[in-house]
Design a protein around this nucleic acid. Structure first.
Length: 106
DNA sequence: CCGTTGATTGTTGAC
DNA sequence: GTCAACAATCAACGG
């Protein structure tokens, strides 16, 4: 059942005095295949659509991304997976955090 | 054991 | 500095 929820990621900015800390070290996850894909295509897309704004590029980028074959996404997914690994390290360090004395926390 | 959620990632463009 | 569609993600937690 697809959760037709447009990522409830709302304004992910500095909360006004909000003490809603999810994670102490907050190990940012790795990037997404789309992120890597966008990194390469963004130039190409804009190249084919010079002068267009994000609205266009974003959509074109998305449809193009899906236009790729699984094997074509491999390099992107590979990077995504590699980035995920990166996150894993942070995650580990995050889990390790607490053992060593923190420098300063406030 | 299973599934949900939330948080996050990066692009551009403009104010 | 922030947000917005676009897409993936996937790790953590709970009962």
């Amino acid at each position: 059942m697809p959760k037709e929820k447009a990522t409830t990621r709302k304004s992910k900015k500095a909360d006004a005095g909000g003490k809603k800390k999810k994670d102490p070290n907050a190990p940012k996850r790795g990037l997404s295949a789309y992120m890597f894909f966008a990194n390469e295509q963004r130039e190409k897309v804009r190249e084919d659509n010079p002068g267009i704004k994000f609205g266009e590029v974003g959509k074109i980028l998305g449809e193009k991304w899906k236009a790729l074959s699984e094997k074509q996404r491999q390099p992107y997914e590979s990077k995504a997976a590699a980035d995920k690994k990166r996150y894993e390290e942070e995650k580990v360090a995050y889990a390790n955090a607490g053992d060593e004395d923190e420098e300063d926390e406030d």
